[in-house]
Design a protein around this nucleic acid. Sequence first.
DNA 1: TCTTGACCTCAACTAAGGTTGAGGAATTAT
DNA 2: ATAATTCCTCAACCTTAGTTGAGGTCAAGA
Lengths: 158, 158
Amino acid sequence: MNKAMKGSDLLTIGDLSERTGLSVSAIRFYEEKGLVHPSRNAGGQRRFLRADIRRLSFVLVAQEFGFSIAEIAAQLQRLPEGRAPTKADWTRISGEFRMHLDRKIERMTALRDKLDSCIGCGCLSMKSCQLYNAGDAAASKGRGPRYLLGDRPEITED
Amino acid sequence: MNKAMKGSDLLTIGDLSERTGLSVSAIRFYEEKGLVHPSRNAGGQRRFLRADIRRLSFVLVAQEFGFSIAEIAAQLQRLPEGRAPTKADWTRISGEFRMHLDRKIERMTALRDKLDSCIGCGCLSMKSCQLYNAGDAAASKGRGPRYLLGDRPEITED
DNA sequence: TCTTGACCTCAACTAAGGTTGAGGAATTAT
DNA sequence: ATAATTCCTCAACCTTAGTTGAGGTCAAGA
């Protein structure tokens, strides 16, 4: 008989790890980041709700959608802790995922169009190349070495 | 008269910073990573070729396309150091950018389709949800807390 | 009861892509 | 000639998303 099945139906961190595919260290890390809030037993060990399986599975899915841990934490604050999300919860969340993804696809498609408009012209050496002004498409990855908010000076070359 | 315009037409790191919009520290960092190979003057200061403006602009564009510094370094090893890239160079490179971008767009579109197939079903609580098996779409961001190569166990919940 | 095995904390380490600061040398402007 | 910039190196630090290991405790089965 599995230890997880006796007494209460609280789960140990190991149980949760097995059920979600997350490593134990990742689950502790996620707790630290506020994604789950396990209670503790008398001996100080973490005890998770069964609903936390779903909660962490949500984290995995959201990560695949490109959300950061911080963004996921914000989403989770709007979901119930102890019960399963309702259909309304899921509709709202999936709508946000949809928008996030659509924006990313749009940015990449716009970048592809710019690339296509450049393929024939060899314009990597031209100051007017659209690709050098593709700054808006970089907003996804943010803080690079670029000048603040796209005020990159014109690239002047022969 | 600009210091960059007297004597030879080599550029200081400050000149290059102004011309590309990169910070001085970023340019030093890129040198360390093998993206540029400036010479040194008698006093030990870096001196860049005018072609390095283009070279670093290429780095910026490639980063917007989602290439890592290491990947960009590999691309640059196939470009000439001292002269402008030829049309053939640019055609090859832009073709690689195109493929890279197309693959990303495909992955995201596939993910969006899975999401759409789930929006009505509230399946975030179901073990059969396609999103839980969207692992192939995550290949872009790679090394997360996921089980090695997608052998995530089935998520079993009530 | 005793011995594994699972769990605990805390600190340090990883990778990418840089930034920041200290302390000093070179160059440019006055 | 001197002051103000710019440049140099090197080391330490930042963020994100975790992993790894040391040293110690808790819980479950024989």
